[in-house]
Amino acid sequence: MSSQGRILKDKIAHKVMLAFVWLTIILLLVIALGLFIKAWPLFKTVSISDLLFSTTWVPYEGKFGMLSFIISTFWVTGVATVIAVPLCLLCAIYLSEYANKKVIAWVSPLIDILAGIPSVIFGIWGVIVIVPFVRDILAPMFGVSSTGYSILAGGIVLSIMVFPIVIYVLLEVFKTVPEDLRNAALSLGANKWIMIRKVLLRKAGPGIISAIVLGFSRALGETLAVLMVVGNVVDLPSNPLEAGYPLPAMIANNYGELLSIPMYDSALMLCALVLFVIVVFFNIIARIILRRIEKKIS
């Protein structure tokens, strides 16, 4: 082939690839715009504060207050975070500082497998194991009667689902703490534990926060597993043993009636948009922190 032909091919390929790159980047905007346009009719009839800060959800009367869904979402995610963070932090410190190669070779594939398990499998396990556990053991312990389908059950199942991502990010963050810094601490006579507390955890502080935020935002959008165990009752929950109804579960549960009630589709798309905005917001924060750490190192 002539060299001119080859160069032309190279240039065309360049343009085509660039087009695909823009296509992917624009996708983010298109999703937001698409959801916004679908939700738009709702803004004309109902005020934004009524939508976001009211708990009255009566689609037949055109009342779409989604506060109880938003609060439920944060409850479930909060419970999951409280359970997952200490466990993941301990596990990540162990894997990065104490565990020998043999242990790591065993543990990391298992965490990979955990990361690959579909949401519905977590859900079915939650129904079989966690729901009865909450109903028969945890609820009586607090002197409450509960069907087991509760925020707590959702939180427990979710916490397991976010283990892999939080551990991955934590391990990446710990890797970025320079070996020299650890050795310097150790050579000053610190034992490993002092080094971890005073050097590793302090140096990795912002990274740990971003790992938590990433896990948190992953949990915010989890749908099917939560839907299966959380109870799905439209009400403002006051404690984790009550049933909740997070945004993703609500969207997934009501798609069937989507087109039979006026404005209902707009309301559900608005719910998706709210979820989108919350998740993107947390993701951006976490990524900014992580990029800063990366920059510092290079």
């Binding site: 959801l35 990433l214 959008g221 979820l275 989108f276 998740v279 951006i284």
Partner: peptide, 12 residues
């Protein structure tokens, strides 16, 4: 950021 968007949002 795209990676972090929940699948239910993609569904919607």
């Amino acid at each position: 950021i795209l990676w972090g968007i929940p699948s239910i949002v993609y569904g919607a």
